[in-house]
Every structure is written in C-alpha cells, then in structure tokens.
C-alpha cells in the first residue's frame, strides 16, 4: 500500500514538473524576442570591495579573466563599462585589496584583464566579477573554472537599464 501511495506521489510530482516545464516552454519564446539580463549569482558579491581601481593588470599576472558586456533586449555590445574582478589567487585572498582590480570594455564590449593564477578556495576554483552601477543594474558573477589548471576564465554580462 505504501508503494502505491509513493508511486502516485511520484507520478504527481513528475507530472507537475512536466506541466510546469511545458508551460515555461510556452512562455519562453515570448521573452526570447529580447536578450534576457544576466542575474547575479549566489555568493557573487562575497568579499566585494567597492571602487577597485582600473589597473593594467592585477599583481604579477599569468592568468586571464575575459568576457563581454551587452545590453539586454537588443544584445548591443556596451563599450567603456567598468568591470571589477577579484579572486583567491597565488598572490592573495579574495578579501586582500591587492587581489582586486577593474578594467573597461572596448568598442566591442569585450574586457580582458590579466591577474595572478586563481587557485581553489572554499572548495572551488572560482572568480568574482562585478558591474556595479551607472546606467545599468548591478550584477555580481561568480564563475567556476572547469579545471583548476586552467589559465583563463570567462564571464559574460547582459545588463538591464535601471
């Protein structure tokens, strides 16, 4: 008897999920007309220090943080946007001032900042990036490296006007 009840519950759960995802499928194409803004990631703002200076590179370099910044809706590249970057690296903790730096996007909305090698900290090799205000809404990202041996990491922003 317990088995039957469990099966039924599971059936309803699966059915509910299928229904929900089906509905989402119906709703999604409407929004796909415009590029959706990137939501902030959980833990993205941890050890954030506002106002990191624009630098040529962070510390001794050797690792590349790259990415793009685009506008929500039409996906137009955004030039001159300030992106702040920090991580636990071979040269310091996330909370250390010397681990923080910022860069600007070029005419194609691309940014590239050299920094020290990111090393696993708090269980994952990861970096932090922030777009923190101005004409667009603030976004914090926390990308994880597929392998801690990687020499670069990418993160992409789609920003929504305030």
């Amino acid at each position: 008897m317990t088995d039957v009840r469990l099966d039924r519950r599971r059936l309803m759960a699966v059915g509910g999920c299928a229904l929900a995802s089906g509905m989402a499928g119906l709703v999604l194409p409407v929004r796909a007309a415009g590029l959706a803004p990137t939501p902030s990631m959980a833990g993205g703002s941890n050890n954030y220090r506002p106002g990191a200076p624009i630098v040529e590179r962070i510390g001794g370099g050797g690792f590349w943080m790259t990415g793009t910044v685009r506008r929500a809706g039409d996906g137009a590249p955004l030039a001159g946007q300030r992106i702040q970057i920090w991580a636990h690296t071979t040269e310091g903790y996330e909370s250390d001032q010397r681990s923080h730096g910022a860069t600007l996007t070029d005419a194609n909305g691309v940014f590239r900042l050299e920094m020290p090698q990111i090393v696993p900290a708090f269980g994952q090799p990861h970096g932090h990036l922030a777009y923190d205000g101005g004409p667009y809404r603030t976004v914090f990202l926390r990308p994880v490296m597929p392998s801690s041996k990687d020499k670069s990491l990418e993160a992409h922003f789609v920003l929504e006007p305030v």
Binding site: A42, G43, S45, N46, N47, Y93, E94, S95, A121, F122
Partner: peptide
C-alpha cells in the same frame, strides 16, 4: 578567513 562565505 572569509566571513561572507561561511554566513552563506
């Protein structure tokens, strides 16, 4: 070492 990570 990292207060916000532990709070999270």
């Amino acid at each position: 070492t990292s207060p916000p990570d532990v709070v999270d």
